[in-house]
Every structure is written in structure tokens, then in C-alpha cells.
């Protein structure tokens, strides 16, 4: 698959899905008016990747948001559910949820989103 990159905008995060190194990054703001529209192609790309039956190897997904609005939250739930499903099928996926050290709400959102994804390996990491 061809690397998927989208630049950050005032409303949407930087997207960098480097399939070759199995490193996926979403970083920045996430409050588009229509999150379903923005995340639709991203979910499709992930679905294609996880259905691809690629050889084993750890996939690292790094999520670092300054702000996530409610409809983006829902899209992230769909994204992580998709990854959790792939992990249940045997994929080795690690999710890194990066939060600023005093951003309790973002840390709490990470727990809300990841707490029930039992097949995923995940870590909530404080950053400066």
C-alpha cells in the first residue's frame, strides 16, 4: 500500500500511515465539522491494511491530540474498534496515546476509548 499522508489543518490532525515501517500517526487538532467525512477514508485505509494479511510484525499507532471534539471521539472509537478486531485475529498492534502532562481530560478519554479494547496493547504516555 502507498503511504498515506495528510497535512495537519486547524481542524484536523496530521495523518501519516507509513505501511513500510508499520508506523501510523495521527497528531494535532481534531474538530472537523463532519468527523465521519474526515475519518471515513482513514478508516477505509486501515481496514484495507488490516485485511491485507500482511506478514507478521508489530504495528505502532501513535495518537496525540491537542483537542478532540465529540464527533471525532466517535470516529476514534470506530478506528480503535477496527484495530482491536484485527488484534483479535492475531495482528500485533500497539497503540500509544500521548497526552500533555496536565491534560487529565485527554488521559481520561484515552481510558474511555482504550479500556475495553482487550486485544490491543496500549499505553497512555505523558508528554511535556
Amino acid at each position: 500500500m502507498e503511504r498515506l499522508t495528510l497535512p495537519a489543518t486547524p481542524f484536523t490532525p496530521l495523518v501519516d500511515f507509513d505501511y513500510a515501517s508499520r508506523a501510523f500517526i495521527l497528531q494535532g487538532e481534531s474538530y472537523p465539522e463532519n468527523a465521519a467525512e474526515f475519518y471515513g477514508p482513514i478508516l477505509s485505509a486501515l481496514r484495507e491494511y488490516t485485511n491485507g494479511g500482511e506478514p507478521s510484525g508489530k504495528t505502532t499507532v501513535t495518537l496525540q491530540f491537542a483537542y478532540v471534539n465529540s464527533s471525532s471521539t466517535r470516529s476514534l472509537q470506530q478506528l480503535l474498534t477496527l484495530l482491536d478486531g484485527a488484534a483479535r485475529e492475531g495482528a500485533n498492534i500497539e497503540v500509544r496515546w500521548l497526552v500533555e502532562i496536565d491534560d487529565d481530560a485527554m488521559a481520561e478519554l484515552g481510558v474511555d476509548l482504550l479500556g475495553d479494547k482487550h486485544a490491543l496493547s496500549y499505553e497512555i504516555i505523558n508528554t511535556q
Binding site: 471534539n69 464527533s71 466517535r74 470516529s75
Partner: peptide
């Protein structure tokens, strides 16, 4: 909030943009 976040049945009916009614809950 957690119920609406994790339960996929809310996606279509609650919001045209996929928010599942989470805005007011937020």
C-alpha cells in the same frame, strides 16, 4: 457518555455527523 461512545447503535440515529449525541454530553 461511555455508553454512547462504545455502543455502535448510536452512530446513525443520533447525529448526522456521527457524533451520536455526544456533543451535549461533552
Amino acid at each position: 457518555f461511555r455508553l454512547r461512545l462504545t455502543n455502535l447503535q448510536y452512530t446513525v440515529d443520533a447525529s448526522p455527523t456521527g457524533g451520536a449525541g455526544l456533543g451535549l454530553l461533552t
